Simulated assay, not measured.
Amino acid sequence: MWKFHRICGKQISLENNCTTAKRLNPTETSSDGICFTNTPLVNGKVYEIQVDELVQGWTYSLNLSVTTNIPPNLTEIRWAGKLKESWLLCGDYLYKNGKGISAYSLNSDTVQVGDKLGIMIASDSTLHFYLNGIDHGKAFSNLPEVVYGVVDLYGACCQVSIINKDCNSKKGNTENREFATGAGAGAQVAIKKAHNFSGRPADWNVQTVCEFIESIPNYAPYVEKFRSEQVNGAALLALDKKDLKEFFEMPLGLAVNVCLHLKKYEEKNK
């Protein structure tokens, strides 16, 4: 079970045995909301937090990062991008040691209350960011052996809580989703429990295909593209990961997830 470290930004109040972080005076100041994991990250483990509360008035929001050390004093470090030896996701852009590197497929500025964000160091020392259980792919490579997670309650985000899955499972709290690993993506992607789509996928009309796409978490933005292109079941079966990436502009992890989900229905309705 992980918690937030007691060293944190001056506007942070730690509650619920250091598993909830709340930024004080969120409408007056956007910064001083840095939190750290209380222990270094374990490779292969996804560290997740849930967004509990947002406020109006700021166009930017939560930042996620890792760093090699926790400074004893944060007086002059009001934003996670100022941390030395840090790898940061701010909005939809990646920063290393405060310097912009490249765009990323996940935008932390658009999170909503109830969204779950996560970070993971993979076995190959790459850093991955998650949104609602979906791995958005490699963000950084060659991470040091020892790093701490950083959650920066910035701008609109003023309260988050830690999700400790081990504790949840002991209480019998199982989420309404299952996980599958896409070999091409090297990523873990989430799939909702099956809707009762009838018939073989090859026989689906355009509307059923759209309902199928919408049933997968975070795929709603792609539905209208499938509808406008009149993709029926037969056409969907003809698409592969490359088509979904290039034509529908899906990240690889999302494209793999569609193929996995579709394969499941094909096997069920043979």
Rank of each mutant, 00 (worst) to 15 (best):
K3Y: 13
K3S: 12
H5G: 07
H5T: 08
R6L: 11
I7K: 12
Q11P: 00
I12N: 00
L14V: 01
L14G: 03
T20Y: 01
A21C: 03
K22Y: 15
K22H: 10
K22L: 14
L24I: 07
L24V: 04
L24E: 12
E28P: 00
S30V: 06
S31T: 09
G33P: 06
C35E: 01
N38W: 05
N38R: 03
T39H: 13
P40N: 01
L41M: 06
V42N: 09
K45S: 06
Y47W: 08
E48Q: 11
V51D: 01
E53M: 08
Q56A: 14
Y60N: 04
N63Q: 14
L64F: 00
L64N: 00
V66D: 01
T67R: 03
T67Q: 03
N69T: 10
N69G: 10
N73K: 11
E76V: 07
K82L: 14
K84A: 15
L88Q: 05
L89A: 04
G91K: 00
G91D: 02
D92E: 08
D92W: 07
D92Q: 10
Y95F: 09
K99R: 09
G100H: 09
A103N: 13
Y104E: 06
Y104A: 04
N107P: 11
T110V: 08
V111R: 02
V111N: 04
G114P: 00
D115T: 01
K116Y: 06
G118H: 00
L127V: 00
N132W: 06
I134F: 09
H136G: 05
G137E: 04
K138S: 13
F140G: 00
S141H: 07
N142S: 15
G149M: 02
V150Y: 03
Y154N: 04
Y154W: 10
G155N: 01
A156F: 06
C158Q: 02
Q159S: 15
I162D: 04
D166C: 08
S169E: 15
S169Y: 14
G172T: 07
N173W: 14
T174H: 13
N176A: 14
R177W: 12
F179R: 06
T181G: 09
T181H: 14
A185W: 11
G186C: 03
A187S: 11
A187Q: 07
A187F: 03
K192R: 13
A194F: 13
A194E: 15
F197R: 12
F197M: 10
G199A: 05
R200T: 12
A202W: 14
W204E: 03
T208K: 09
T208P: 07
T208E: 14
V209S: 02
E211A: 11
E211V: 05
E214W: 14
I216D: 10
Y222V: 05
V223P: 07
E224R: 12
E224Q: 14
K225W: 10
F226D: 01
F226R: 03
S228Y: 11
Q230T: 10
N232R: 08
L236I: 11
L239D: 02
D240K: 08
K242S: 11
L244Y: 02
E246P: 04
E246S: 13
P251Q: 08
A255C: 03
V256Y: 12
N257P: 05
V258Y: 07
L260Y: 11
L262W: 05
N269D: 13
N269W: 13
K270Q: 14
